[in-house]
Write a protein that binds this DNA or RNA. Structure first.
Length: 314
DNA sequence: AATACAATAT
DNA sequence: GATATTGTAT
C-alpha cells in the first residue's frame, strides 16, 4: 500500500512494453468478412460491429499505407485476372457474396488456406515442446500459440503432419529401413526436401522418443498468459512475393525455461479460460487488424493463401 | 457436446 | 505436397 500504489494504474500504460516490442506479434488473421466490412461504409449498417480500433491508444509507427487495396477478391469463381470489375476505384468492393448482401455476416465463408511459415511453425514447435507431447493437443497448442485467426483445425492438421514427420524420423534412426517398400530411396534423413518446414525448426529431443524417458515435462497446465491479454499476433499476407519489404520485428519467444518460469505481470489472475460463450453475441470477436492477400494461381479457382508472418525467431 | 485423431478430399 | 474437410472414436 504505498502511496504510489494509487497511481499504479496510471503508470500501467507506461509499464506496457513498447510497441516495438510487442509489435512483432501483431496483426491478425483476417477474416474475409471483416475485410469487406471494412470498406463498407454503409450508413445503415448495423451489424457490422467492427468497432475496435486499436490504434487509438498508442500510435502506430508503422502505418504505411500501403498499397493498395489489395483487393480482396472473394470471388473464387473469378479466375480472370481482373479482380474487381471496378477498375479504377476501389473502395468498396463488391463482393456480392452470394447472397445476401450485406445483411448477413458471412460466417460461413471459407478462409484462405493457412500457410505455415517457418516462424509460425516455430511457434508451433515451441508450444508443443513446452506442453510436452502428452498435453500437446490442438486446442492447447492453439491457445499457446495465440495466433489470432488460427483455428483448432489448422493446428490439428499441422500437428498431424508433424507427428508423421516425427515418426518418420524415429523410424530412420533405428529402423533400418524401413522398409517401406518404398523403394525409392529417398530419405534423406534429416532433411528431405519434403520436410522443409519441419527441418527449419529444431525438434526437441523428447519428441523423438516417446517411449521412455519420461519426457513429458511437467507442465500439466500452462498459464497461458499470452492468451487474451493484449492481442498481438502477427500475421501478414504474402502472396506471390515472399519478399515483402515489410518490417519484421523479431519477438523473442515468450517461452523460456519453464524451470524458472516466473510469469509476472502486475496482476493477471486471468486464467486463460475461455468462457463458454457461444454464438449469439453480436459483438463476439473484435479483430484488431489484419491484412489479407490472395494469390490467384491459375484458374483452378485461385487459391487464396493467407500467410501469417513472422513472429518469431528463427 | 466437444475434442482429438485418423483418413480422405481438394 | 500441403491444407482442409470429413468421419469416427473418446
Amino acid at each position: 500500500m504505498r502511496a504510489d500504489d494509487s497511481n499504479w494504474f496510471s503508470r500501467w500504460e507506461e509499464e506496457l512494453p513498447s510497441l516495438e516490442e510487442l509489435m512483432p506479434l501483431s496483426q491478425t488473421l483476417i477474416t474475409p468478412d471483416l475485410a469487406l466490412a471494412f470498406d463498407i461504409a454503409n450508413p445503415s449498417n448495423t451489424t457490422t460491429t467492427n468497432n475496435h480500433n486499436s490504434s487509438l491508444h498508442q500510435n502506430q509507427p508503422l502505418p504505411p499505407p500501403p498499397p493498395p487495396p489489395a483487393a480482396v477478391s472473394p470471388t473464387p469463381t473469378n479466375p480472370l485476372a481482373s479482380p474487381q470489375p471496378n477498375s479504377g476505384d476501389f473502395g468498396v468492393d463488391s463482393s456480392e457474396l452470394g447472397s445476401g448482401a450485406a445483411g448477413d455476416e458471412p460466417r460461413t465463408l471459407k478462409r484462405p488456406r493457412l500457410v505455415w511459415t517457418p516462424q509460425l511453425h516455430k511457434r508451433f514447435v515451441d508450444a508443443v515442446a513446452h506442453l510436452g507431447i502428452k498435453n500437446a493437443v490442438p486446442k492447447t497448442i492453439m491457445q499457446l500459440m495465440n495466433v489470432d485467426g488460427l483455428t483448432r483445425e489448422n493446428v490439428a492438421s499441422h500437428l498431424q503432419k508433424y507427428r508423421l514427420y516425427l515418426k518418420r524420423m524415429q523410424g530412420l534412426s533405428s529402423g533400418g529401413g524401413g522398409g517401406t517398400g518404398g523403394g525409392g530411396g529417398l530419405t534423406g534423413g534429416t532433411d528431405a526436401a519434403t520436410d522443409h518446414l519441419f527441418a527449419s525448426s529444431p525438434v526437441p529431443a523428447h519428441f523423438l522418443h516417446p517411449g521412455r524417458s519420461n519426457s513429458d515435462h511437467f507442465l500439466p497446465f500452462v498459464p497461458v498468459a499470452a492468451l487474451q491479454h493484449h492481442h498481438h499476433q502477427q500475421q501478414m499476407a504474402a502472396v506471390g512475393h515472399p519478399q515483402l519489404p515489410g518490417q519484421y520485428h523479431r519477438q523473442m519467444g515468450h517461452f523460456g525455461s519453464p524451470t524458472n518460469g516466473q510469469f509476472e505481470h502486475p496482476f493477471l489472475p486471468r486464467q486463460t479460460q475461455q468462457p463458454v460463450h457461444r454464438m449469439g453475441a453480436p459483438v463476439p470477436n473484435t479483430v484488431p487488424g489484419y491484412v489479407e492477400d490472395l494469390e490467384s494461381v491459375n484458374g483452378n479457382g485461385g487459391r487464396k493463401v493467407l500467410t501469417l508472418f513472422p513472429t518469431g525467431d528463427d
